[in-house]
Design a protein around this nucleic acid. Structure first.
Lengths: 342, 342
DNA sequence: TTCCTGAGTGTTTGCGATAACAAGTGATGG
DNA sequence: CCATCACTTGTTATCGCAAACACTCAGGAA
């Protein structure tokens, strides 16, 4: 038996369950019970054990626990472009929900958005024994990547395409685009142009479709959409072309940053917003209210999406089946970049 | 011995090392060696084992490995406000560096920035057996939180105050502020006003100090700094007051979003930028070039900070001692929001 | 021949926790 | 007065892997 003192080196190794047990005068099993099912231990014993835990600053070793229980209390998030407002906010929502439920979050950000790298990200997380994985990869290729998953690993997708074979939490992009478009039509504009997001992004398609259908439902002409890449820069470049279009009085931009670039392009060619052209964005980034002019946009509650995704995953981990699809309603925020058609 | 088929239920349990060993006709130890020290195994044996690994889609169980080796190949990040551009970018930089080095990242975001919650975040990560922790908590109170750390856990701080008792990776805020201020003075402005960040944030103090010292070094009058909270909203509110100041021709805002609010406030009272007032921001958020006018600002290379922080942590894990302090130089990006004093 | 060397492989043990089962206590009831 | 039960606590086995040590077998040195 190794006694304290046998070892001349004075490295204060972290206490283990046995140490706590010894100090409290019980068996290790009782310590385990105090930590996991306290109601099964006599109050006095429990108190003694807890005192010992505090005195030794004992922390259960999660690796050992994982090994025997098969559950880690950690979930993984596979994501792309966590610097963007949307993914970052979603991640934050997930993290908060996880924390409140005693879960820890590991992240695997992707170098690129391909089936391969998604599968690889899931794998890296799986090898860390996460209890489940949330994928934030709003690209149509994600569906592919999610089709060949290790069996038995609960996976939830955020903002996924329709055919994703796992539960999905997302903002209703279509509804948001419809709202934005109708808002512009209701101000008297003959039709609405669209500054779309990059192809094959789930949000791009959803917003494009919503915009088109809203126009068609009213029998309006559907202009050719212009395609950007989410950046203010692309909004600016495209905006310069768009600004030359005759009769263009209303634009629905697929996100706020492109709308920002567009605003600048319009200003540079002397088209006033909202007097000459109305602009609607999408996202409601915190600074949208301070654009010039303050941007009318569609607010997405990313935090709520994160919370829903976590809840779905928790259900899955708990054994609930079924390919659920949970949608969050976006909200139109009217500011000063939209006005009556003149 | 349990044979495949003993169990009527057809749950395809994940393969373990023993399964691979059996299929390859070797012992489990040899499999372990193939995975960890391949050069110690005869090539033919190695090939047989690797084939078996692939056939069974075997993944080592990291919990078991952690238990026996004491190292997890995961690091933790404690952070606050991961939605903001700075922390999000830093986190991304860390994640990328970690991935390239085979590390996984767990995050513990803080509900508030206090000594208590920092300590708690570190604890949550420690209980997951991370090999080390990076703290992104640019608040002066972080120093306190870092003073009482579990012994033996390598910790690195990002953007920390001077007295933080652990290695630090950060952008040289002071130098950035000096550069911004000198730039304005060099344009002929008599002095420079400052729209500061919230008190007790490391960045706020660093930028404030740099600004003040740059003015003092030239013997200029030092106006009373106005204090915001990083948001465009606060920049706008304060900007409305600032705009009434007589003789105010140059402002250094402590971040781009406050500068954005300031730009709007100036416009509203009819002061032109840069003709009447010059404005410099800090951060160079991707959309800064599309502000109206395009914002002169100080670019921080957050990705580089993340990389350095990871490197420092890796050194620490490897046993390197010493309280290193690694600074990244910021860069002044001149755009159109600054001009000669009229 | 005998011994040694070292590359390659196998066996045993233990990391720290929990599951499953065992056992001790006192109370209950027939 | 003893069987039985509920409650509390202890004992043993096990999770999957790697460290430490043991073994085998060639080829070369003595």
């Amino acid at each position: 038996m190794v006694q304290p003192g046998d070892n001349p080196a004075e490295r204060p190794k972290a206490a283990v369950m046995e140490d706590v047990a010894e100090l409290a005068g019980v068996s290790a099993m009782t310590v385990s019970r105090v930590l996991n099912t306290p109601e099964k231990v006599r109050p006095e014993t429990r108190a003694r054990v807890l005192a010992a835990v505090r005195e030794l600053d004992y922390r259960p070793n999660s690796a050992a626990r994982v090994l025997v229980t098969g559950r880690s209390g950690a979930l993984g998030v596979v994501s792309f472009d966590t610097i963007l407002f949307g993914p970052a906010s979603t991640l934050y929502g997930i993290e908060r929900a996880a924390r409140e439920n005693g879960y820890l979050v590991s992240i695997a950000s992707l170098p690129a958005l391909t089936r391969r790298s998604i599968a690889e990200g899931v794998d890296r997380l799986r090898s860390q024994s996460v209890d489940g994985v949330i994928v934030i990869a709003p690209h149509e290729s994600a569906g592919e990547g999610l089709r060949h998953l290790p069996a038995g690993l609960p996976v939830v997708d955020v903002g996924g395409a329709k055919d994703v074979p796992v539960p999905v939490a997302a903002v209703d992009q279509h509804a948001g685009a419809v709202r934005a478009t109708r808002h512009l039509l209701s101000l008297g504009h003959r039709t609405v142009w669209h500054l779309a997001g990059p192809p094959n992004w789930v949000e791009s398609s959803g917003r494009l479709k919503g915009w088109r259908e809203a126009l068609e439902a009213e029998g309006r002409e559907v202009p050719v959409p212009m395609v950007g890449d989410w950046t203010a820069h692309s909004g600016y470049e495209i905006g310069k072309r768009l600004a030359r279009e005759d009769g263009m009085t209303a634009v629905f931009a697929a996100n706020d940053h492109m709308a920002m670039g567009l605003l600048r392009a319009l200003r540079e060619v002397g088209r006033r917003v909202p007097e000459d052209v109305s602009v609607v964005g999408f996202d409601d980034v915190p600074e949208a209210a301070y654009f010039w002019p303050p941007l009318t946009t569609v607010r997405q509650n990313f935090g709520e999406v994160g919370r829903l995704a976590f809840q779905l995953l928790l259900d899955r981990i708990g054994g609930v089946e079924g390919d659920t699809r949970r949608l969050v309603e976006p909200e139109l925020v009217v500011r000063e970049s939209t006005g009556m058609s003149s």
